[in-house]
Nucleic acid binder design. Sequence first.
DNA 1: GGTTCCACCCGTAGTCTCCA
DNA 2: TGGAGACTACGGGTGGAACC
Length: 263
Amino acid sequence: MNLVLFEQDRDFIVQPLRHGQMDYLEPVTEALEADLFRQLLGRQILQRLAETFPTPRQKEEVPVWLYLASQISLRLHRAAGYHAFPYVIRTGGLLAALGPAVGRQAVHPGSGVASVSCPGFNHKNRYDRQTPCDQDFLRKFARDTDSGRLQAWFNAQAPRLLRSLKLFDAEGLFVGDASYLFVPDNEHYEHSAKLLFDEHHHPVDPQKVDPRDRRYQWRRCYKLVSLIHVNRSLEFFLVVGGAGGCRAEACAPARPGAGPTGT
DNA sequence: GGTTCCACCCGTAGTCTCCA
DNA sequence: TGGAGACTACGGGTGGAACC
């Protein structure tokens, strides 16, 4: 974790920290994240995934493996949007794993301010690069990727990769899990559906309950069905496949009140 | 010269926060 | 509780670099 403080900020920030007052704790340390990406890169995992990724680009400037690594890093930091990419790069461990050929971090000896310098993968930039690629590249690459091909790619490559790494338990236990992803009530969320949920986030049949009951709420959502591999002692779980979407008929609860928890 | 990629910029809409 | 302003996410446009 990098923390650069100016003199006037110290009392304001350090004192509450000493008393255990914190609004948010970063769940991933720089060292742990760097170790993860060293494994992924050193064992050629990201490169192998990139070879089959359904890239929307006809020619490649920024490598696909960097796109995949950036997406993983954003998820690790729970970044909701690409806007956070410069901050994730500056504070996370991805840059350390990638090495100075992709970017290096330096702390100014006088001011103590940390800065990042990245050579990039082309010479189209006008300003000094703070990230290996522009956040707009990640955003538009993701937007242009065909969702159907992406889902098919994940469902094919994830089990293939896990099998090659010998990560499947010999007993071969798989669990089907359905979750509901709640979104704001905005019809621009394509293929989302409004369902009636009870106070435990279980979908219920509006024909069989009183929708005016305040315990029930109409909520817009997507449904995610995941195939998860576990061992009997539940020491780990691996998501090996999934399907998303939420047309009303597909999202209707199979058994009122017995649905999965919202996630 | 045409095409593609992407860095950079801008406008818009949605969401959040603050305050009366 | 509602309005104003700030913030954020996103789509679209532009122009330069790279390549054929």
